[in-house]
């Protein structure tokens, strides 16, 4: 299985979002997954991160944010959030974070709780 996802042997909550190439390196794209809006980012080291796509501050589009290895910065008012945990480093409310990784076929696989 893929690193980062729980391997409880159950596929419960796993969603395949399609090929990795949808997301350019260093950027994010938004996906609607089972009714949730999720922003998935592809870091420059190749790994993936997923957080909820709507900024808790004023609804900004998180997938349009700027990222580095650890945070995403919302494009509207520049609040920052840790990509791992979703916690804000600038005092906004948190984003949700989701386990995500690429599978052997090069597809993005996201786990919803």
């Amino acid at each position: 299985m893929m690193a980062g996802l729980s391997n409880a042997g159950q596929d419960a909550g796993l969603h395949v979002l399609g090929p990795l190439e949808q997301i350019p390196v260093g950027e994010g794209r938004a996906f609607g997954v089972a009714g949730e809006q999720v922003a998935v980012f592809r870091l420059r080291d190749g790994s993936l991160r997923a957080v909820s796509a709507v900024c808790p501050h004023k609804g900004g589009p998180i997938a349009d944010g700027t990222i580095d290895r650890s945070v995403v910065m919302c494009p509207l008012h520049q609040h920052s959030f840790e990509l791992e945990t979703g916690c804000s480093t600038t005092g906004a409310g948190p984003l949700r974070s989701y386990p995500v990784a690429a599978d052997a076929a090069g597809n993005i696989v996201l786990q919803l709780p």
């Binding site: 949808q22 350019p24 794209r29 709507v54 589009p61 998180i62 997938a63």
Partner: peptide, 16 residues
Amino acid sequence: FTPGQFRTALPLEVLP
């Protein structure tokens, strides 16, 4: 220039 360059980042109904 990039895949999905002009793809929507958000369904707009959740926004003001």
